[in-house]
Design a protein around this nucleic acid. Sequence first.
DNA 1: CTCAAAGCCTAGCACCGCTAGACAATCAAG
DNA 2: CTTGATTGTCTAGCGGTGCTAGGCTTTGAG
Lengths: 192, 192
Amino acid sequence: MSVQERKQRERAERERLIVATARELAEQQGWDAVTTRRLAERIEYSQPVLYSHFRGKREIIGAVALEGAAEMAVAVRAATSAANSPRERVAALARAYLDFAARNPAVYDALFQLDGGLAYAQEDTPEPLKDAFAALLESLGEVAGDGVHPGLFTEVFWASLHGLATLTRTGRLLPEDAAQRVELLVDRLAVV
Amino acid sequence: MSVQERKQRERAERERLIVATARELAEQQGWDAVTTRRLAERIEYSQPVLYSHFRGKREIIGAVALEGAAEMAVAVRAATSAANSPRERVAALARAYLDFAARNPAVYDALFQLDGGLAYAQEDTPEPLKDAFAALLESLGEVAGDGVHPGLFTEVFWASLHGLATLTRTGRLLPEDAAQRVELLVDRLAVV
DNA sequence: CTCAAAGCCTAGCACCGCTAGACAATCAAG
DNA sequence: CTTGATTGTCTAGCGGTGCTAGGCTTTGAG
């Protein structure tokens, strides 16, 4: 039986390698450069091996997205836990979110821009995605204001951050004033 | 000379046909379905003809984006001009923006999501793009609040709308609460 | 030792964006 | 009216894409 276990382990290890390699390649050269051929070559297996782990490229994107969601949740919680007031927590959250998006553009795309075949805002939404939203909710719920549903407020705040992140990265907004925009956004949206 | 003029007219007409067909196809089946082969077939010319009008698919996307920017500016101005108070104008603007995005998803993508080879937020930004931003600025500048740069405020408001539009359309936000989110956003961001 | 199962690869499909080069229509010059 | 060059358009093809069928080799149970 130990032989089968070893094989299972090796298989799981290879799956991690695929996801890590796809992510690396995407961060280096963009998702367009992540082709099944290049990916197969980098992991030193043939293309069909990829399809024994994932249904297709879409699922690989989804796997990177889930990994990224977990990391984003960690980053957001780390930033907010170091702040002392609700106001500071929200500002720290906003900075951490945008920082994550800027430092991991490919992962961010996998999460919120590309189709990774994942369900969002549903019962069957994968746990990492729910938890990433929960991480936002924890700090944003504090400043939703009276009579405002914390979930709804979190969605609006999140959407605003998402807009800033994507428009900035695609050159629609100049990066120079990024800090000022965040400040304005936090000032106006958060009720402290 | 009249013959050359006629040819020029026919050529311009065919260019409009290409852009209109690309847009139509994109709205019907998404930009992925807009291939040079399909596009060529629909306009009843061969593929190379496309390349005598545009450098490539990217430029066709850019042409659709410019067309869309002009239409969006019209839609926004129409909505805001019917409102009587600054607060109402901003609410109308937000609704009109999101409505445009929802009704013309492919055009919206061409404008703000895809690479159409256009310059944004620069001196050499095409006029329709500058004017679409100006249309937002006209109503949003009114409610930026004291000491807040109208342009910066417009960028933030725009980014928030963009976040709502894109996250909703890609299934990251449920459409049910869309109206409530807009209301909350306008309430908080606009200083009246 | 046999033989089925599992694992992996080569080769190929239909499609993509884009372009070279052949061919036909057009028009100015002789 | 006849050249000859220019313009317009097409067919065919290049190197790439995601994905899969089918065969070969290795493995491990009986």
